[in-house]
Structure formats: structure tokens, C-alpha cells
Computed example of a mutant assay.
Amino acid sequence: MSDRTTCYENLEQPQKRGHATEAIVRAAFAVRDIPVLVPTSDNEPYDLVVEVGGRFHRIQCKTAYRKSEGTVAFETVVTRRRGDGYDREDYHGRAEYFAVYDPINDNRYLIPVSDAADGKMEIRFREPNNGQRVGINWAEDYLLEERLADLRRPR
């Protein structure tokens, strides 16, 4: 039997990896008794809507990939092919969170769109060799369980 990373790599089409990630993210919310709503069309700038703490949150699902030793990354923009090239658009004002599945470490992250870097965001799960501590997006700060606890708190 293959490991998770190999299974994802064997899904050659990005759409298949995306569908797998969406299913894993939906399940992560479902087992925590969080209602999940799915748009009826594929043209929305979000993949899911969840209800947490009496509020609705639009979620864009993303699959993380190995960036460098100790980090994974995900794209924070949607890229569409146009007749004259490519169009890149961010998710600000179109979704509140990225739900990121990391098949390398089998982690699920919930990252506010407002926290995400333009174009791509790296998440570090291991200390860097150079000892740097500033400007790092630490994996433990974005774990799904931790972020859900924040969302459940009354405003």
C-alpha cells in the first residue's frame, strides 16, 4: 500500500488532487460536527461554507506541496488561462479561509485569507537550520483544531 504523498503524486491531474483534498477537508469538519455546505456550481471563489459559532465562513480548499526541507506551500491565487495569457486573482473578499491539506504530514490547516502571502504561502513544520524565527508561518499556529477553537469563541 502506498503512502499518502505517493497517492497524491499518482493523481496526475490537478483536479483529482483538488477533489481528494476537498473530500478530506469536508470529512475533517464533519467529524467535528460542523455543518458543511457545498455550492451547486464550480464557478464560486470558494469550495465550501461551514457554520461555526453561529457564523458562516467561506472556505477555499488547497493542497500543500513540499517546498523545501521542513516546509510545505500552497497557492493563494487562482490562475485561469485566457486567450491572451493567464489571469491571476486572489481570494480577498471572496473567501474568509483557506483549508489546506498537507499530504506529506497528514495535517489540516485553517488559514485566514488575510494572513496569506500574495501568490504562495509557506508553512514551516520543522525548525530551520539557520535558526531564523522571525517572519515564519508556523504550522502549529494554523492547525485546524486550534483555529476552530478560535472561531467557536463568542465575539
Rank of each mutant, 00 (worst) to 15 (best):
M1A: 07
S2V: 07
D3A: 00
D3P: 01
D3E: 06
R4C: 10
T5K: 15
C7W: 03
C7P: 00
Y8K: 01
E9C: 02
P14E: 01
Q15R: 04
G18E: 01
H19M: 06
E22P: 03
I24D: 01
F29Y: 13
A30W: 03
R32L: 03
D33A: 05
D33E: 04
D33H: 04
V36K: 00
L37N: 14
L37I: 10
L37K: 10
V38Y: 03
V38S: 06
S41Y: 04
D42W: 06
D42T: 10
N43E: 11
Y46H: 08
Y46E: 04
L48S: 00
V52F: 05
G53Q: 04
F56R: 15
F56I: 02
R58E: 06
K62C: 10
A64Y: 11
Y65H: 14
Y65L: 12
K67C: 07
G70I: 13
G70A: 15
T71Y: 10
T71N: 12
A73V: 11
V78A: 15
V78Q: 13
R82G: 04
G85W: 07
D90P: 15
A95R: 03
N105L: 08
D106L: 08
D106W: 08
Y109P: 01
I111L: 08
I111W: 06
P112T: 07
V113K: 10
A116I: 01
A117V: 11
A117S: 12
A117L: 12
A117E: 14
D118P: 09
D118H: 12
D118N: 12
K120Q: 14
M121L: 10
E122A: 14
N129M: 15
Q132M: 11
R133T: 07
R133C: 03
V134Q: 13
N137S: 14
W138N: 08
A139R: 10
A139L: 13
E140T: 15
Y142G: 11
L143S: 13
R147K: 13
R147N: 08
R153F: 09
P154A: 11
